[in-house]
Design a protein around this nucleic acid. Sequence first.
DNA 1: ACCTGAACACCGTTCAAGT
DNA 2: ACCTGAACACCGTTCAAGT
Lengths: 236, 236
Amino acid sequence: VTVGRKRSRQGFGPDDVVEAAMAVLDEVGLEGFTMRAVADQLGTYPATLYWHVGGRGDLLSAIVDRVLSDMSVPDAETMHWTDWLRAMAREYRRVLHAHPNVGGIVSTELVVGQTALVLTETVLQVLQSAGFQGTQLAAAHNVIVGSVVGWVSVELSSRPADLDEEWTDRFAASLRELPATQFPAITGNLDAVNGRVIGLRYRGGAEDPLDNAFEMALDTWVGGLALQLQRTRPGD
Amino acid sequence: VTVGRKRSRQGFGPDDVVEAAMAVLDEVGLEGFTMRAVADQLGTYPATLYWHVGGRGDLLSAIVDRVLSDMSVPDAETMHWTDWLRAMAREYRRVLHAHPNVGGIVSTELVVGQTALVLTETVLQVLQSAGFQGTQLAAAHNVIVGSVVGWVSVELSSRPADLDEEWTDRFAASLRELPATQFPAITGNLDAVNGRVIGLRYRGGAEDPLDNAFEMALDTWVGGLALQLQRTRPGD
DNA sequence: ACCTGAACACCGTTCAAGT
DNA sequence: ACCTGAACACCGTTCAAGT
């Protein structure tokens, strides 16, 4: 099988389309993610894709499910619930950093696939075993899952396409010229803050991961949840 | 001035374009947000917009800045830092719920406008006054801002366009038929969990806000951050 | 200085036609 | 059953031409 202009691959299924789609998304990002690009990646024609998958939105959902299915979380029974939550969060962040452009989808559209269902069940089990019940169980789930998913999406935010490299330099320079009287906290901690803090970054988390902050966030979320537990059942 | 097919409004500036753009985004969502729709909203032609603003991406950034500028946060000195963080988070959530479709943008693209700069400075000041310093100050900032911004974006996730009402019913029904042996936590808490927990929702946060969970998230984040502070400087 | 009209190079999706 | 080719109704953006 030689590689022609269009090597006209045949005999592929929906899974192959999803794989090709993920490759395209990884390479060119969401704004470059077109059905035509996916078809090219697969060596076929745009219209052919519609035989195998529903459409663009369908493909994006399938990509999310596939990325989540890469997670390998430990058994719920083998460890303390706080450690399990940490492991789960680290795994989630790991698979999303492997496909940074998926971050924007997860925090934008409801995630509903089979993988998400199993994951939800496990998180609920762990929180239940920790002592959360009923309405508070549901809330605790939304606290930890929303924090982890949302935080990683924010970390993985990327520079808008219309802002070029030159803008980056100007922005970094403008931070150095900020008046100290008006911005004492920024100017007083410029090295710790310039390009490293969420409102003052000029590169996304795929290039510049926020490792320190994530570890501190883990402690915050898990420690904070443990506090909630004490609050409701103080005698336990 | 009668309203014709195109009432050819003239003498408007960039701010008017941003306002029209926000109206369009609120009405039809990000996927319906087209330059042509903005032009229609304004009673002018697509090409005219480019005289006033840079383009689509530019408009979206301007909308984010405008929404953030609706926040009114209390003075940093008037209250305890934990209360200030709570007030800030509530304000952020309030303005984003007023423009739910903006949530997807904020967690997708770096936010860099003037309003974000001022907000960042204030958050840093508050955390500094609480006792965070240097690298830990930057990390704490990223913990709270990333959690708040990310969580609200996840809350405001919406149903993908290709999933209709009928899908909603089927999904809710499928949850009720889940095998109890395989999904004990979900089936055992079905009422608390069906449609109310992040992986099991079929409506976005604009329609079904997660109020309970947000209040618990506030306690978790702020309480967790206070723990971080004790950990580093136990004698304070 | 600002607006109009037309065009360019794309999109997602559909559908008749092929094999 | 699966693939191809062409078309439709859109996009964002540019640019010459108007006023």
